[in-house]
Amino acid sequence: MTVRHIIALVLLVAGVTVIVLSCLGVLVVPGAYQKLHFAAPASSLGGVLVGAGLAVEAAVFTSAFKDVFTVLVLAVTGPVVTTATARAVRARDQRQDVQRRDDRPGEDRPGEAGPTEGRPTEGRHIEGRHIEGRHIEGRHIEGRHSDDRHSDDRHSEPGPG
């Protein structure tokens, strides 16, 4: 067992561990964004480690050329696919937000530009209502009871992912 063989085995075990862990992570975590986070290292880190192990074992570069090329294809296309999928998830979430807003026409919010506005805008509006409630109720500093129904409705909207 030469040193080169041992190095190749270590790289192989590391790569296999990374890939198996990312598979288990994808299985465990909820939501598409979190799953994407766990799926990305399998191609960009795990595949490269396994390919490095193969290259070290082969010793002559020309005999491992196709291995290295395949792993490079994986490493280059992995982030591209991840980005495209994340874009699709974002488009779905925006469509769902718009649909949910259309389902409740009585609750139009003035000053809100559209579905592309992020969460901070909604938060500010909720805070504004709370401040109003506080003024009306006088000494009630917490001021959340008068507006509890609305704020609960807002907060219960599932976030992205």
Partner: peptide, 9 residues
């Protein structure tokens, strides 16, 4: 979309 992530992996 979650299924698509599983397919890619």
């Amino acid at each position: 979309l979650e299924r698509l992530v599983g397919l890619e992996l």
